[in-house]
């Protein structure tokens, strides 16, 4: 019935929505930033534990749609062990992928995050996927305590 949506709602996304990874409060986190999408009410708190300039651990709490939950869940998995610069580079690539400006975008560059590529066909949902990454960006830059997509 929802054949048209297969690119957007892949099984991996349902899986992460049902069982989000790293869904916990982190005691003694080095960075803690809240992300908020006022348009849909998605709200998350991202926690990072740093080891020098490397992300030793990442976790989150919050509530949101399947896309935003899967996105933050996948993100916490993939950034663990990465340096700040590596994580920022990944954010840049993820942003390029989800905003869909480059038709020849190489999905291999983002690894398993490629399951979220489908949002580029749904402009209203791009922010659901990028909220997690904007929050991470703020956390890495240690800019502020909360960020908003608006």
């Amino acid at each position: 019935m929802f054949d048209d949506l297969r690119d957007l709602y892949q099984e991996v996304i349902f899986d992460h929505n049902r069982n989000p990874r790293n869904f916990r409060v982190m005691e003694n986190a080095d960075r803690q930033v809240e992300g908020f999408n006022p348009l849909c009410g998605d709200r998350l708190t991202l926690y990072l534990k740093m080891d020098g300039d490397r992300i030793a651990d990442a976790s989150f709490q919050g509530s949101g749609c399947a896309i935003s939950t899967a996105s933050v869940s996948l993100m916490t998995e993939i950034v663990k062990g990465k340096t700040e610069q590596e994580a920022e580079d990944l954010f840049t690539k993820f942003h390029e992928m989800t905003t869909g400006k480059d038709e020849n975008f190489n999905l291999e560059a983002v690894g398993k995050l490629a399951v979220l590529a489908g949002v580029r066909e749904y402009p209203a949902r791009v922010k659901c996927a990028t909220l997690a990454w904007h929050t991470l960006d703020a956390a890495l830059k240690n800019e502020q305590k909360s960020i908003s997509t608006e």
């Binding site: 019935m1 048209d4 949506l5 957007l8 709602y9 849909c40 509530s63 749609c65 399947a66 209203a124």
Partner: peptide
């Protein structure tokens, strides 16, 4: 199930509702 997922899914069936 978040309302925005409901909205996107119903849209794929031609149904326009508001989510938010």
């Amino acid at each position: 199930i978040h309302p925005h997922d409901i909205g996107t899914m119903l849209d794929s069936l031609g149904i326009a509702i508001r989510a938010g």
